[in-house]
Write a protein that binds this DNA or RNA. Structure first.
Lengths: 284, 284
DNA sequence: GCTAGAGTGAAACAACCGTTTCATCGCGTG
DNA sequence: CACGCGATGAAACGGTTGTTTCACTCTAGC
């Protein structure tokens, strides 16, 4: 990836037009591999001269040399996959490649383990604004729980991550009680307070879905629906990549279900960002 | 493989020279994908006219059309896995299966995109207790950032997620300054405060690694090392599954590096859990 | 408000490309 | 041996390409 490296090094001296060229060809490298200066210029909506200047600025002699460089990168990519894999794990499998395999497998087996229709019921509940959503999580998965809450919150009101001190949690559970939808998240070596809290909520009639490591988990037995995640890791901690992939599925399906309802919310959020001028595309 | 098919169909009407052209371009399809008539002619040791006649004989209008055909074949192979999956929406493919494909591809391409040795330097820094680690994240990835901080914190002291109000952030950055290691996390539509904070830290000599969506991102240009994540999604929000997989790789590698140093910490944490009787295996 | 300078695209230009033409070669047939 | 004919490459020919020039626009700084 010679081009990417050069782009990175000189990203700060690029003009707006040149930056657009860079983004265009990063998003579509075939354009420069097969195309002419005019093709790239049109796609990036700049003049042909600017494209050539861009190539020179990156340290090439001209467009032709830039194109040759991209073609070299590309030829490597279209070598048969088997060959590439072979010389990647030359001899000993590294920690990095094992990690990649493990995480990819986590995603696959977590999502494959979903029993058809099982997610359907959950999405129905999560899409219904009448039921406030409470998320309970063990410390180990608190980050992905937050991630889930943050996304779901943008699609519907009444989503909350329950944490803080136990008094607060008990009070909240007592208040929302019967109509609450619980999403409970914890893996083996379950946290006692979490089980207690879930028990309390169940006793008050709340509807619960468990995301856990095992069908025999105490969480699973207390929940209406249970999802089993794969949390294998090449390191000392459980990986929550699979968990996040599962939670994202819920988000994606809720978004599809609530399409119109969500748009209003998303527009409001977007408008607020714009009003505050808090976001930027290029840092300038 | 349109070309192969045409070649097989008309193999019997090819002249010796034409046959040699066919063998040449089958053995090296990049030649015709990227090269000129003259290139192919030279490689097959024939004249340029023969190459053109060859293309016509296969049913193309001329060399240009033959080339276009090969390029189409080739571009299918080299488009990023995520993209290919995206428009593979073949009829009745469900949202759930597409989501599974997309998330698995996110993990794979995020981890495949790591330039060898690039992670090495980062892990060196993250493993060194002398450098406090500060994590900065946009709201959209705050959950995975927390997840990362929580895991890394168990392996070494001095890890902090920087959030809260801007005054607090500026003060913290000013205090730790030169010896800090920054991990900055944000995707397109970058948050302005984050860029500002990173600029401030860089000015004070901090060492930074960026995790972002693009080599041209303002974060990448300010960082010592930049990692590009795939965040494709079947829904409206970016997926941070790939991001989490990348951060987990850092955690796994830091754990391997610090093996002995980390054990003491993990034992202490474990002891505290046991003392508080906060964990259970079965809920009883 | 004016100016210097950077940024940009239209147009001119020379080089190269794909295509076509045409003379030559090789070879079987009358 | 002459002849016809398919095969072939050198060279000519438009067309297109990458490159360069140049005039215009926009903006920062005085």
């Amino acid at each position: 990836m010679d081009l990417e490296q050069r782009l990175r090094e000189r990203a700060d001296v690029l003009t707006p037009s040149e930056r657009r060229i860079g983004e265009t060809i990063l998003a579509n490298s075939q354009l420069v591999a097969f195309g002419t200066v005019a093709d790239v210029a049109e796609a990036a909506r700049v003049g042909t001269a600017t494209v050539v200047r861009f190539a020179v600025k990156l340290g090439f002699d001209g467009y032709s040399q830039l194109q040759a460089s991209v073609q070299r990168d590309v030829s490597g990519q279209l070598r048969p996959a088997v060959e590439r894999i072979r010389d990647q794990r030359s001899g000993d499998e590294t920690l990095a490649t094992r990690h990649a395999d493990v995480e990819a497998a986590n995603v696959r087996s977590t999502l494959d383990a979903i029993r058809v229709g099982d997610d359907r019921a959950v999405v129905d509940r999560l899409s219904d604004e009448r039921f406030p959503v409470l998320v309970l999580s063990g410390v180990a998965s608190r980050g992905v729980a937050m991630q889930f809450v943050g996304d779901l919150e943008q699609l519907r009101p009444g989503v909350r991550l329950l944490d803080g001190n136990q008094v607060d949690i008990v009070r909240t559970l007592a208040l929302v009680g019967a109509e609450a939808t619980l999403v409970v998240l914890d893996l083996r070596r379950y946290e006692r307070w979490l089980i207690d809290a879930m028990e309390l909520a169940r006793a008050r009639g709340a509807w619960a879905v468990a995301v856990t490591d095992n069908v025999l988990s105490p969480l699973a037995s207390m929940a209406e629906h249970a999802f089993v995640v794969s949390a294998a890791s090449a390191g000392p901690f459980d990986s929550h990549v699979g968990t996040l992939a599962l939670l994202n599925l819920f988000v994606v399906e809720v978004a599809a279900r609530r399409r119109d309802g969500a748009v209003t919310r998303l527009d409001a959020i977007e408008a607020a960002w714009v009003a505050a001028d808090a976001l930027t595309d290029d840092g300038k």
